[in-house]
Amino acid sequence: PIVPTDTIPGRFGFGRAASAAHLTRLDSDVRPDGIGLPPGSGTAGQGAVLFRAKCAACHGPGGTGGPNGALVMTAPADALALSGKRPERVIGNYWPYATTVFDYIRRAMPFNAPGSLIDDEVYALTAYLLSANKVMDSTMVLNANTLPTICMPAQHLFVPDDRRGGPEIR
């Protein structure tokens, strides 16, 4: 006889519960609203020293361009527009959220030793890059409270893709 199949369960019960300690170790992302930012702080001044030591070889002095690209605007957008040149797409003129700078440096930089920076260093480097990009006052202490308050010039330019197929070319 052909009998009906076993009812598929709501849960299989495979895997183990994730402990709080496990999640603390693993969960290190940062959102624009600041969720995920760790304790600690840093300033642009501290960041400048770190940047020279750990970053400038790849991103150029002051982050203005090296073998792995610029991180800092070199001229205001208006001046570039007048000169007919297109501005490089860097933090100051393209990134919509300041928290992303912190998150990305912490997870991926320096490229040759990712994960090697402590959180204070990441705050300092973020402060340095944000102030070099003129989106933050160079004296501000960056921490979990101040970082999410920084408003990025390009933020209003971002629009989610609303294409849904069909004949239109966009």
């Binding site: 969960d27 797409r89 919509p96 928290t99 992303t100 998150d103 990305y104 971002f158």
Partner: peptide, 23 residues
């Protein structure tokens, strides 16, 4: 290695600085 469920996008570097198009 990890999936985190949330109520808003994270705006990671790969969906802001990269993988976006001026239009």
């Amino acid at each position: 290695r990890r999936l985190e469920l949330g109520d808003a996008p994270w705006h990671t570097r790969e969906e802001t600085s990269k993988y976006t198009e001026p239009v």
